[in-house]
Every structure is written in C-alpha cells, then in structure tokens.
Design a protein around this nucleic acid. Structure first.
Lengths: 138, 138
DNA sequence: ATGACTGCAAAGACTTTGCATCTTT
DNA sequence: AAAGATGCAAAGTCTTTGCAGTCAT
C-alpha cells in the first residue's frame, strides 16, 4: 500500500528552489530562502519534505558537511568538491566514473551496489586566497 | 608556537585500537571497546582524541553514516562501501583512482585539491539476504 | 469527510566545551 | 611547578517527532 500524496504549495516551491540552485543546500538554507514568501514555514516541514523528496528520488544527499546534511537535485552522475574551510560544495560535471564501475565492484566484492560518490576535498579559490593573506600577515 | 603533547595511556590504547580494526569506528564504538580496560574513560576524551589524531594525520574521517562520524586509520588510498541498511563500512582496497586525479581536478577547475574519496553505497551481503527473506514472508 | 500536510514545541541524538582535578615532564 | 590530559556534566547543534489544527481531494 502506498501513501497517497497531495499537492502543497510549500512543497512545490521547495522543490523548485532545490532544482534551481547548484549550491547543494542544507535544510537551514532552504528554510531561510523560503521564509520571505512563506512566513509561516516551519523547519520541521523542510526536514519532512527533504525526506519525502529523497524517498521519491527527486534529490539525493551529498553527505554531511560541517555538521549539516547537504542535498543535490541533479540526478546526472557527477562528482563534487567540498571546501574544507568554508564548507561550500561545487559540482564537477566533467569528472565521471561510469556506472559500470558499480557493477564491477558488485562482482568483485559480492555487494549490491546502487550508486557511488566521488568527492574531492581541499580549498576553494576564495579560501586559498584568504589563507595566503593570513600567512603574509603573520 | 606548537602545543606540546604528553604521553597518555588512554590515548595510546585508543590509537592502537583504531589501528587494529577495519570496521571504521565511531566515537561510541571506541568508547565501548575501551570501557572494560579503562572504566573511568569519558566520552569527551574519546572525541578530543579523535580530533587530536585527525590533526596529527593519524586517522581520517570517512564521513557521517547514519548520524555518526566514522574514522579510518588506514592512510593508503582505497575506496569504501557503505551499507545503507545496517551502516557497516568496508574497505575496497582493489578500487583506487590514483593521486594524479587530484591534480587533474586542480588544473581543470582551479582548486587546491588535497584528497578525494570514492564511496559506494548499497546493501551488504547480510542485509541483502534479510531483505529477500522479508520479501518472501510478506 | 478523509487523510495528507503543516506549525509548534518538545524530545532525541551526537558532539563540543568549561572547569576542577589528575598526570606527565 | 607548569602545562597537557581527563572526568563530569552542562550546553550546543542539527534533526526527528507527537499532536492538534489546516488544507487538498
């Protein structure tokens, strides 16, 4: 038995918002962005709809960055870069590994692989620059 | 100015423990394992030492799985598999991408890449089996 | 009318932190 | 003796959840 799903303006706007940004939002970010147009929005609703979208395959978790879970509405395969300093997450669309890798791992290790995630860590241009300035100043 | 570091039996035992397991422990796991030999151990100390080890390059975070941060004392490059059902994390030593990939991303995107992480998601053999049993029973 | 969706606030889970005490050097 | 390491408990952050009211169908 599936649970029926009904229309909700807030949910609809939330999905549109998620699909129109590439910043890999956190719950808090979504909440703040929607607050102006939906003054009575609740953070609980944001969390509940994030779970809803995940269950329906509309978004995926990109993982937890600096304590906050981040999400991505892009379903095409691509990699991510996470800045260890400011926590920004960016897409690396050119870097892909191919879905056959999942099958290869499945076979080699006897696992039921459903997806993979390739994430690079380091410093974004902005943070690299401010780190250098710090070095000069000290 | 660096802060001096002094010997501590608890810290030493904690590192040994981390280095002698491949289960990618959480803070809680470490705490429970050390409790028998260190009855007065505090969870705060575990967290503080995990940060200490990270700062000294002795362990790395594998990310947050089902709400808990997991760590790895293996420094050689390798990939991971995370079971979405039970949260177990296993090494995939045969699957590596080569460090030149980091440099390639650095050049292509103008980022200071320090490392990458390749993680596969799916169901481990145990959970695959119990899921099938459920299906049969329903 | 039914049942899904939401706001609100409380509760939960994990992690961090302040302070007094103990330990290493 | 000085300064790092720890225990304990309180506080902090992010997320989940129960319940009553609201809204879509």
């Amino acid at each position: 038995m599936e649970r029926a799903t009904r229309y909700s303006k807030k949910r609809a706007d939330m999905l549109t918002l998620l699909q129109s940004t590439d910043c890999h939002p956190s719950a808090e970010w979504v909440y703040q962005k929607l607050k102006p147009t939906h003054p009575d929005l609740s953070l609980g609703t944001v969390y509940r709809n994030l779970i809803f979208f995940q269950n329906h395959g509309l978004i995926q978790s990109v993982g937890v960055v600096q304590g906050q879970e981040r999400f991505d509405a892009v379903t095409q395969p691509h990699s991510h870069f996470v800045c260890e300093c400011c926590g920004s997450v960016m897409d690396l669309p050119k870097i892909t590994l191919g879905a056959d890798l999942d099958q290869s791992v499945s076979r080699q290790y006897g696992l039921a692989v459903s997806r993979h995630e390739l994430t690079f860590h380091g410093l974004c241009p902005t943070c690299t620059q401010s780190n250098q300035q710090e070095t000069v100043l000290n």
